[in-house]
Design a protein around this nucleic acid. Sequence first.
DNA 1: TCTGGGGTCCTAGGACCC
DNA 2: TCTGGGGTCCTAGGACCC
Length: 424
Amino acid sequence: MSPVFALVDCNNFYVSCERVFCARLLKRAIVVLSNNDGCVIARSEEAKQLGIGMGTPAFHITRLIETKEVEVFSSNYALYGDMSARVMETLREFTPEVEIYSIDEAFLHLPEDLSNEEYVNLGQEIRAKVRKWTGIPVTVGIAETKTLAKLAARVAKKSERAAGVVNLARSPHVERALQMTNAEDVWGIGRQHARMLKGANITTALALRDAPDKWIRRRMSVVGLRTVFELRGTSCLPLEFCPPPKKSITVSRSFGRHVETLADMREAVSHFTARAAEKLRRAELIPQALVVFLSTNKWNDAPQYASSAVVHLPVATDYTPELIRAAHRGIERIYVEGYTYKKAGVVLVDLVPVATAQCNFFDIPDTERARSLMGAIDKVNAQFGRGTLRFAAGFKQGWKTRAEHRQPRYTTHWGELLTLNAAI
DNA sequence: TCTGGGGTCCTAGGACCC
DNA sequence: TCTGGGGTCCTAGGACCC
């Protein structure tokens, strides 16, 4: 018997999280924005109906927001992360075999010997329990491969009759589901491949399933071929119970204002490096190299330039000052005078677990001191807020991310605690 | 004026080495 | 004049996911 997967997908997750704590928001058009007040990254059904697309730049819909009284939220990742953990815990009530695929999605292994009807009932049970325990509405897709389970969930969201659950395992409806799904909506088919497939007259998931292997291999590499196999019911993507160890840690930002001097660029990159180093120590990993990159604004007509540099660390280290020095070496290699820069970032790569990291034999006493210093800084920042203790790498911060419409940080900043005005 | 951030994997060409 | 094959590393770019 082939395995059976369920995909549990939280509906409009960030919006649903906001609604759990604020009944007033039910039935309202709501959008949640990305960092930098950039794009729309979550929408309520009502907002979707207003024609607000995923990824729409916020400044394109300022009028709509006013005239239709759309509620706007900045991302509140502390809240979403916590709600996500509650949903995942609830799913573990059904099986220990849960793969947390993203903040709002999980794959589960289901028993292999149920009937079509029993799978649908089990799906409904999952929905009901998650709703009751966490307040989050979810959709469930069930099938014999992950790709088909994703597709089933997609069909469930579109069909009112499905009531949030579609099962394609041991089911006679697979062909119909493939027929009614566009090729571009298949998991693993992005914009480029969708366009290419359209040119070849492959517009449905069914047509994609039946495309010749060799042609798919040539046009879409082994990755695309795997997707096609999965559509045919051959499982190629197993469940991953424990997340594979991270291979890189990135911190990058678009600048609130363009950066035009090496000094400003060094300052920004220093901050990114310090943040990346914090993440690194929390994950108990050590990098063997570091990549810095910078780029101009791809949206405007000014001369374009983008580059990156790899800096190898003679000794793997998680010591922030050492990493900042390395990042500066990198940035000096690629920085070219005369451009206005819009974005930069730091990637820590070739990560290995702290426990197995090579340390420099002659540096052991220093390594110990460095480690306890970093530990102390991280602790202070965890307790008193990010950035309480910082590295003296410049304080101008002209590059800093824009956040003009930020909601108060109620739970993480003393100055922004919720205040109640008693109406007497 | 204003277009996110953090990841993974694959491919391909050139340099260099044996 | 003839002139292979396999490996690694680097860089760059492209594709995808949430």
